[in-house]
Every structure is written in C-alpha cells, then in structure tokens.
Design a protein around this nucleic acid. Structure first.
Length: 290
DNA sequence: ATGCTGCTCCGGACGC
DNA sequence: TGCGTCCGGAGCAGC
C-alpha cells in the first residue's frame, strides 16, 4: 500500500529515467479497454481510452512532482503545459523497461495495463493488480478539483497550522484521531501504516476523539507523523503486499515498523488489538495507547 | 447545510 | 477444489 514515502521513492526513481523524454504512443490493455467500453472508470479517469491515447503522444516530460500520494508528470506539447496525474491506489506500480518481458514478477506482468512508448525507444509501464489506481490527463490541477483540496505537504511550513485549524472544525472534532490524520484534507499522504505508527509512538488510542487531545499533544502528534514519514523515506519506504518501487525494488521500512501488522506490542509485549475505525482496520496496543 | 452510508473501481488471501 | 467473504484509497451520489 503505497503511502507518501513509497510514492516519494517511486518519484525519485522515475525522475532521472523519464525526464526529458517524449511520448511516442500509448497502449491500453484489453482488460481496461473492455471495462471502459462498458462505462466503468477503470484506471483511466475522466477520458475514454481513445482520448487518453491520443492526448499523450507528442508531449515531452518536463519535470515530475509528488503531491500527497499523487505523482504529477508535468508535460509540454507545442510549448503548452499539460499534466499526467498518477495515483497508485492499492497496488499500482511503474516499470521502466525495454520490453514487457523484463517485468519478471508474474502478477505485475499479468496486470500491465498502460504502456507508454517513448521516442527514445524504452517503455514506461503502469501495472495495477487491483485497479484502484488512477491516471488522469489534465491541463491544470483545477481540471480535477479534489487536487486543490488536498492538505499542504506535511513538510510545508503551513501544514501544522492547517492541521490545528482542521482539528477545531465541527466536522472533525468528534472524529476518531486515526480517521482524522488519515483524511487527505487534513494531512497529505498519511495512510494506515504511518497513522498506526505515529499513534503508537505517541501512545494515543486510535479511537480517541480529536477534541479530547490537547493542543500540545496534537502538535506533538503532527511532528511525529512528519518524523515517521521522513524516517520511511530515508529507508526506502515499506515493502508490504503489492507495493514495489520502480522495476520491482523493495524498501526496508517494514522492518522498522513497531505496530502496523504486529501481533504483540513492540514496547511492552502485550497482545495487540484490532478495531475498525473509519472503516479501516486499526492495530493498537491496549496497554500503551490510551 | 451538513454529514453519514453505501457504492464503485478489483483480485488475492483466507476460511470452511 | 471451490465457493463465499473480506479488504482497501478516495471520490461521490443520495438520503
């Protein structure tokens, strides 16, 4: 499950490979073509397959940017800016190869759904087992308004003020803290793994109501989220289930996690508990987290 | 005017 | 072996 650190890893790997290249053509798998043909929004969002495949050729990749869990491919065509926006969802991955057979893991090769051919001769392949990911061709962020509503980057100097401001809104004050910090309008890029870790490190019960946490503790919690995200980026992200970096690489952060996916508390050894909060499985230590 | 709930994109993992 | 059920980022329609 790629969260901010994993997406950052993908971005850093992708950047030197694709920057400056020109897209020659785009191919979409028969599976996606068929899903789209019966009206489903499978991976390619907002455009039909033909429009998408016609839009990209002739564009040059000017630079990449990560925004929350999205990767923006900033493009230029005839001097005009466009963007290809990518979200990996649950199981999306990019592969830079010379041909499809270079994707050695069968499950990724089998679910290769969008292939970008470069003028330079190599390919960029988007593979997605669960098809929860998305690709959008846009002129600007405003063409897909939810992008404008995302919380600031957690490392941005305004991010903490934004977080505190949101925590006082009626809409959020009665919410469970875990649901709150996993909301992309509140914190950018913090999913189940890092929300779980940050709350464990802070010894806060994931179901505790936002309004029952002091301002000081909220500030510390936000800082802990930033620390755990940066720690993960430094360690190449967490390689869990279907997440891969470019060309199938793996990170090391999964070995540093203390609560996510654990049977016993890494601190006191108590058997961990699981509770569904905001519709998502949440693991916590009933002894340490209050 | 909010804010819930459920639906939608799916296949793999798991239990019986 | 085979079938049913659960899971999940995130937006959105409908109540």
């Amino acid at each position: 499950m790629p969260e901010l650190p994993e997406v950052e890893g993908v971005l850093r790997a992708l950047q030197p490979i694709v920057t400056g290249k020109t897209i020659k053509s785009v191919e979409v798998s028969e599976t996606i073509y068929n899903s789209k043909a019966i009206g489903k929004e499978a991976i390619i969002k907002g455009l039909d397959v033909e429009q998408f495949c016609l839009a990209l050729p002739g564009t040059k990749i000017d630079h990449l940017e990560r925004r929350s869990k999205y990767i923006y491919f900033h493009l230029l065509k005839d001097g005009l800016p466009y963007m290809l926006v990518s979200h990996l969802g649950m199981s999306g991955a990019w592969f830079s190869v010379k041909n499809l057979h270079e994707i050695t893991e069968v499950k990724f090769r089998k679910h290769a759904h969008v292939t970008i051919y470069f003028e330079e001769g190599d390919l960029l392949v988007y593979s997605d087992i669960r098809r929860f990911g998305e690709l959008r061709f846009l002129e600007t962020e405003a063409d897909y308004p939810p992008l404008l509503l995302m919380a600031p980057e957690p490392f941005d100097q305004h991010a903490l003020d934004h977080f505190l401001h949101m925590s006082a809104l009626p809409k959020y004050e009665n919410k469970a803290i875990k649901e709150f910090i996993m909301d992309g309008h509140v914190v950018s890029g913090c999913g189940n793994i890092y929300a779980t870790e940050a709350l464990f490190r802070m010894k806060i019960h994931p179901a505790r109501a936002v309004k029952r946490i002091s301002r000081e503790r909220k500030i510390h919690l936000f800082q802990e989220i930033v620390i755990v995200l940066l720690d993960s980026i430094e360690n190449g992200g967490s390689t869990i289930s279907d997440y891969r970096t470019i060309n199938g690489g793996a990170g090391n952060m999964q070995n540093r996690l203390q609560m996510y996916g654990k049977k016993e508390c890494g601190f006191c050894g108590t058997k961990t508990k699981q509770k569904t909060i905001g519709g998502r499985t949440s693991t916590y230590c009933p002894a340490c987290q209050k």
